[in-house]
Design a protein around this nucleic acid. Structure first.
Lengths: 253, 253
DNA sequence: CGAATAGTTGACTAACGTCAATACTAGTGG
DNA sequence: CCACTAGTATTGACGTTAGTCAACTATTCG
């Protein structure tokens, strides 16, 4: 993933894009599992993932942990630190990874000078929030099988958008333990669900690659909506009497 | 909750606060269960909840639903719509509620004129994201009992910050079904956990009121960190050999 | 080749959901 | 003030999903 492409995916163009990108002159390589920033830390840099996979993760006092976000090449890492001054979660490389870094003070200064850049980063912050909300829906209301199917759809979708998937195949270097952390499951159960997805002919997964064999059915299985970032009007819902009554939406006529 | 107080809680002061508040001249009353905005809708207004409780909620095609956020008096509703143009989720009154509204175009114009206001709203967007992340951790890695305890702590904490709690008592007009939607549980199970919290002498809950009887123990039970919005450095973790090895954090020395 | 990591399996358990009945509560109109 | 009603809370029996533990196998990588 080129830095320019990453910057354009923020919605920046022309001079804004060029000037913003020019701040990310330095690169840093992270070993697999290496922390880029720790939970609650102040970092003097803003980072964009250029290569490899990473995650945002929170660890509870007793060692349980939950992944809050999966970062693919081209994603901005830890955006909230830019406005809040601190990282809300640890950022950790899931594979050997490369990040481009800009000094936070430089970014701050540039935002003042070019408000459109601030606007774009604010928009990116909001999109990150929506993605988190989507995961929240999954953990709250979807079964393990659905969650996994949904995640496979999401990854393929995002990898395509980043130009990193060919047809229905992309790199997928995550372990089942990594998946378990994302999906709020145990790795044993993830394994069972992966096997079910394979048995039903929906995906192939292994050796660091994901192949979607039957995308319509996988999408259906995960309840995935491709446009959940640039959202269209609410999908037509089955008119369910109970539902309408419960929320006082029944047409009084 | 006065509008001024709400505006100050965004971090705005003096002229910025006054000018921003002046945009919220109109008010609207929502009946219990009434939708303020629908999922995916474009709204021409930015709203601040002045009175009552509200939620952001996503409904799946089959009727399952998950609450994404609980709004208390003083909270900005549906902030992401301001930068993304659409609501990512429905906003619904949980009680009879009052919102103050500003025309979105007016807010946009004011942000251009006074960048500090944009900064404050961006910060609020980021804080909303962190709150969503905290719920994600709960749904992914906390038991039903812990989640409920955590939510009680969160609500009391926020109600105090809004000046709406006296000592350890505050209004709490949510039904157990509402709680179930927030916590990703069934209402029957919520009921069982509420009873357990009561039996252990941690809370009193009923008739629209919440009383925390033993705050230290409730905080402990929920793993609640009061500062999870203005985060301090990572809490000291038990040094756990397994954990360190698993994540390659073991000191190589 | 060997060590470490990752994936797989089965047996068992715990947490939580579902269903269906029953009790309580608050608001309503008589 | 009382009966009525709708919404809410509670209970028990039972089913299902997912977690835990402990082994074992397959891969990867040095």
């Amino acid at each position: 993933m080129s830095l320019d492409r990453a910057v354009r995916s923020l919605g920046l163009q022309d001079t804004d894009a060029a000037v913003f990108a020019s701040l990310f002159a330095s690169q840093r390589t992270l070993a697999k599992s290496e922390l880029l920033t720790d939970e609650g830390a102040r970092s003097p840099f803003v980072s964009i993932l250029v290569d490899g996979f990473a995650q945002a993760v929170r660890v509870l006092a007793d060692g349980r942990q939950q992944c809050l976000a999966l970062f693919l090449p081209g994603d901005c890492l830890d955006l909230t630190a830019l406005v809040l001054g601190r990282s809300s979660a640890a950022t950790r490389a899931l594979t050997l990874a490369t990040v481009a870094q800009a000094r936070m003070t430089d970014v701050q200064a540039l935002i003042t000078e070019r408000p459109q850049i601030g606007r774009a980063l604010w928009r990116a912050t909001a999109l990150r929030g929506i993605a988190t909300e989507e995961w929240l829906v999954g953990l709250g209301r979807r079964s393990a099988f659905e969650r996994l199917a949904h995640l496979m759809c999401e990854v393929m979708h995002r990898m395509r958008a980043a130009g990193l998937a060919s047809h229905a195949v992309c790199d997928f270097p995550l372990t089942q333990t990594d998946l378990a952390d994302m999906l709020g499951l145990s790795c044993v159960h993830v394994n069972r669900m992966v096997q079910q997805l394979r048995a039903e002919g929906l995906i192939q997964l292994g050796r660091g690659r994901l192949t979607i064999c039957d995308e319509p059915r996988l999408t259906e299985a995960g309840g995935f909506q491709a446009d959940y970032l640039g959202r269209s009007p609410p999908p037509a819902r089955k008119t369910d009497e109970t539902f309408l009554l419960r929320y006082g939406l029944a047409d009084p006529a």
